[in-house]
Write a protein that binds this DNA or RNA. Structure first.
Lengths: 208, 208
DNA sequence: TAATTTTGAGACATCTGTGTCTCACTTCGT
DNA sequence: ACGAAGTGAGACACAGATGTCTCAAAATTA
């Protein structure tokens, strides 16, 4: 009995994240309501998936808030973000797979705001000398979200125990994103820019 | 003019990886052919996306082959795999998003074989002391594929330069997957099992 | 209990995408 | 140049999903 809108949306995610083309029939059954009631709650399929996307973005924004990613040490902030976003990993998985959502301006704006916050976190961490600067903040943002989505898929399909999720995500991602402890972080901020640093491979001009 | 089947499939990926619900009309236009010819090449939409999935899996299998992941040092093998799989990252992105493909037994079998090979690579690397044992080989396999898919999406949307792709993937993933150089790898294989090692957090019994 | 509201089940029209066909045109090979 | 094969554009019927409606049953409230 899920008469609440948000409850229905969460049930819808469980179906849509695995089968994006699921019919309204299946979604209604997954939510434990009839197709008629589903149509009473949401004007149509379009509105339903749009609201699912909006819910996902709101949850992710809330995770960024509760993690207080703008404050304090960036590594600690990222660890908080992992803990805060893993419970909603399935929503993120849906967002990652449903690129079509971003045709709507409001959804797209909401998305860009959150990604910008994530980007700022990594940029700040790089300036603090916490995160590696050979990897662009944009790529770090993208990869982090991809891994959150991967966590969501893996949990949903039973390939990953929910209890291990946060640990697995944090250890793998931070291992790749943090500067090696052997190179101690300087006290002064590091200039982050087009400089290509100690990488053994240097990306040159783009040529497909 | 893409009359060749594989050429059409590659063009189809470009559309389907972003919009899985794209109509036959769009796919045909993306391939530069008419809808009639598209139907002449593939019996129907079902067969088309099935063949796209099959192509993706064959490419990934070929990448595993050319990387010779079964031979030699596991870190070097993984670096070779990165280089070999990045060119087909968009195919992998399609595979990651299209869970519906795995209803077909042949596709599912092909998938499981490749994942098993990936899993074996990580397990071997863990036994060699190259990869961390706090992260399960299953999660490493999954996360690696997720990141390859993320690379594909990022390249397609122009958020990541193709030249930086292999470097970004290798550095981020290996950073998280490799054992810290500070803990030197022993010469004898490490027993990999249910033992929970030096992790500061211990996953206990599953409770949703 | 009675009245009001909400829900479920089914029927229905509509619409969109798919699959098939035909025909004129282009391209290739001889 | 001629014939053969392939292609593109369009028309068409069909199938399936969507959206709307009605009515009976259930749940809520007074």
């Amino acid at each position: 009995m899920a008469t609440d809108r948000d409850t229905v949306l969460e049930a819808a995610v469980g179906v849509l994240s695995r089968r994006p083309t699921a019919h309204m029939d299946e979604i209604a059954r997954a939510a434990g309501i009839s197709r008629a009631t589903l149509h009473r709650l949401f004007p149509g399929r379009e509105a339903l998936i749009r609201d699912v996307g909006r819910l996902g973005l709101e949850r992710f924004a809330a995770a960024l808030d509760t993690a207080a990613i703008e404050d304090g040490d960036t590594e600690a902030a990222l660890r908080r973000l992992v803990d805060a976003s893993v419970p909603d990993a399935m929503l993120c998985a849906f967002l990652a797979g449903e690129n079509q959502l971003y045709d709507h301006d409001d959804i797209n704006d909401l998305w860009e705001v959150q990604i910008a916050r994530l980007h700022a976190l990594f940029l700040r961490g790089q300036q603090q000398g916490v995160f590696r600067i050979e990897l662009s903040a944009a790529w770090l943002s993208e990869a982090f979200f991809d891994l959150v989505a991967g966590i969501g898929w893996a949990i949903q399909d039973g390939r990953l125990a929910p209890r291990e999720a946060a640990f697995s995500l944090a250890e793998l991602f931070l291992g790749g994103a943090l500067r090696r402890p052997s190179t101690p972080a300087p006290t002064a901020p590091i200039p982050v820019g087009p400089t290509h640093s100690t990488s053994d491979r240097k990306p040159e001009t783009d040529t497909p």
